[in-house]
Design a protein around this nucleic acid. Structure first.
Lengths: 189, 189
DNA sequence: GTGATTTTGTGACATTTGTCAAATGAATGC
DNA sequence: GCATTCATTTGACAAATGTCACAAAATCAC
């Protein structure tokens, strides 16, 4: 159990020095939890204290646009689940829901945040996580503006083949920004 | 001149404590420069040492997709110009070009970066800047996935009316992800 | 296994948007 | 001021995508 937490910290502390003492300090704010399929982890328009790291399972994030869901991302093993708005203690724009039974590490941002401002190592660690997140967002924008929906589908196929096994095509179509039917026709080729 | 630099630091250090000493430290890595219209500030596929803060002027960023330019953002007064890739010392994906004669504060990321890892205040400051940038990216994704091109045009009209005075419609159309002609027809209504 | 429910695929048609070409309007140089 | 260049608008048509309806396939409950 502690092994999993250590693995998480190491994954996100690339290039940042974190002493044993700081790891012990961080661990006080992390814990492991299990949730059922379809569990709503984060709810639109609400404030939350936690971010999550996926040990096992899958999740999706979606907004509601005129009553229909628009999927914004999917998370699998070793991905972070969270929102900048949680980090900033603001209500969320999106809902995050588990697509499978999941084991997660939960991170209490509310109690961790004061440490960021007082502990250099944790400040650097936090900076590295946000940097990683910004890279994720930048890539996403790049793909969206740069590629056709067909190209984006093929990229998803290549980068995250398991996504297509584990996620209904309806969600993937909305993630790609096209209708279910158009995705179906793209796949037929 | 130092006033401008101080103004920049204050704008980006909201919620972060920065002592006089640290400001002095930071200032060693900032300077003010003037550039002519059409000057290429950052060049695709190259590494750069600097990020910029716009005192006066306008700039655009674009990728090349199959020979045609796809505009990704525009910067005006009090905006930051930079790339995560510069921060990470990687070659850029995009080209940044000045649309008007401009006065900029340049920030030497190469020499500032070591300070981030050793000075808590600068680490927090840097974290705040990246956090701001992540928010900018998240908003952009939200708008792109959530709104039609027409809605995005109206949002731009509302949020940055000056953009439409200062930027050719061809660039704006490509930024919105539609053809010049379609934008022209949207505007006709 | 069987029926019910959900998910995915296909056809027909309407709508939107892109593309190409030409016309109009605005800005610039001499 | 006039010609040249660049930016924007408009029209005609083609291509892509969405929508609606329904069929086929897969999944789930019992």
């Amino acid at each position: 159990m502690n092994d999993l937490i250590l693995q998480f910290i190491r994954q996100y502390s690339l290039g940042v020095t974190i002493s044993e003492g700081t790891i012990g300090e961080l661990m006080k704010h992390l814990s492991i939890s299990k949730h059922a399929k379809n569990h709503v982890l984060l709810q639109e328009n609400q404030r939350h204290d936690f971010a999550y790291f996926v040990i096992k399972g899958a999740a999706r994030s979606y907004y509601l646009k005129d009553g229909t869901e628009v999927n914004t991302w999917f998370a699998f093993e070793n991905d972070l689940i969270g929102s900048l708005n949680t980090y900033r203690d603001l209500p969320l724009r999106e809902t995050v829901e588990l697509l499978e039974e999941a084991t997660l590490i939960s991170i209490n941002l509310k109690t961790v945040k004061p440490l960021i401002h007082s502990n250099l190592q944790i400040s650097n660690f936090s900076g590295a996580v946000i940097e990683e997140y910004a890279q994720f967002l930048e890539d996403r924008i790049f793909y969206t503006q740069f590629m056709s929906s067909k190209e984006r589908y093929e990229l998803l196929l290549k980068h995250e083949p398991m996504a297509l096994q584990r996620i209904p095509l309806t969600y993937i179509a909305s993630y790609l920004g096209i209708s279910r039917e158009t995705l179906s026709r793209l796949r037929a080729k």
